[in-house]
């Protein structure tokens, strides 16, 4: 798999406080990577390092095949668009002027793309209104528009739907999906709104205490979050034979436990198990969401 961003054992300390401790992450080309973590878990510190705003204390990362210690990292960064925390915009300029400044900075030869970008993010009709007078949602959209300037092929968004109304959330979601599908742009999205993230992300990274605790693909996560009945039995081999006979999908976890997917008729299952001389010890229905998966991963009781 081709990775556009790989981080290995990345650490960052501010005095005695350790914001990142040995974080490793791999972002495949074309992915929408959702980075999930509590407040203060180290998400924003991580993207600050990737974007060159801060230097790591130890460890390294590779961006488009260039290590952070190499001079060519600056060239790799030219392929990135980013909105980190609050969008960095000029309050006394209009949306179009903000984009023109960014295009001049990037050396984009013409401004013909600007109206299209503004339309894309829903700021096509802001006219002469100064960005300082924009609402929080409009500023967020302008930040995304600035990240899109210069045709980047990797965009980093920190809480992109902060301050957006429900319609704005849907529009930004569709925009991200459209850019990903049509232009092949990869995304790294930091978000607290896990339900929203679960609608677009193709890969997930779960970060806690400055460390990546789990990196998982969408399909793998769907499997993990799928509605199932977790059973404990005296013999999973016997359980497997019974479930095969009943044509029910399952997953053996250990010698005594398994996950059974889909609806089950408990009486028939118990009868079949009895025929196999297998005892059903317990059965518990599980219906995990991304939220519960995350909470289980980083310490549910603490965060519930």
């Amino acid at each position: 798999m081709e990775y556009i961003l790989s981080a290995e054992n990345l650490s960052k300390s501010y005095g005695k406080f350790c914001a990142l401790s040995g974080l490793s992450l791999h972002l495949p080309k074309g992915a929408i990577y959702g980075l999930v973590g509590k407040n203060g878990a180290g998400k924003t510190t991580f993207i600050r390092i990737i974007c060159g705003l801060q230097a790591p204390t130890s460890g390294e990362y590779t961006l488009y095949g260039k290590k952070n210690s190499e001079k060519e990292i600056y060239v790799s960064r030219k392929r990135i668009g980013a909105v980190i925390e609050t969008p960095a915009i000029y309050a006394d300029m209009t949306a179009e002027e903000n984009l023109r400044e960014k295009c001049l900075m990037l050396g984009v030869p013409s401004f013909t793309e600007i109206p299209e970008i503004l339309k894309l993010v829903g700021l096509g009709n802001t006219g002469r209104k100064k960005a300082g007078k924009f609402s929080l949602g409009m500023k967020q959209r302008l930040g995304i528009a600035l990240a899109l300037a210069g045709n980047p092929d990797f965009i980093i968004l920190d809480e992109p739907i902060n301050g957006l109304d429900p319609q704005g959330i849907v529009e930004i979601r569709e925009l991200i999906l459209k850019l990903n599908r049509e232009r092949g742009i990869s995304f790294l999205i930091l978000s607290h709104i896990l339900d929203e993230l679960s609608r677009i992300a193709t890969h997930y990274g779960f970060i806690d205490n400055g460390r990546l605790v789990k990196e998982i693909g969408k399909n793998e996560l769907l499997g993990a979050c799928r509605k199932c009945t977790e059973v404990r039995v005296s013999d999973t081999k016997a359980l497997a034979r019974a479930l095969d006979a009943l044509e029910i999908e399952y997953e053996i976890i250990s010698e005594t436990s398994a996950k059974i997917y889909g609806e089950i008729n408990v009486s028939r299952l118990v009868f079949s198990l009895a025929e196999e001389n297998c005892e059903l010890i317990s059965a518990r229905e599980k219906n995990e969401t991304l939220e519960t998966y995350f909470l289980n991963l980083v310490g549910g009781s603490e965060n519930a």
Partner: peptide, 11 residues
């Protein structure tokens, strides 16, 4: 505030 745009853009 805004120098981060330039750093992110690879300068």
């Amino acid at each position: 505030k805004c120098a981060k745009n330039k750093i992110t853009a690879g300068y």
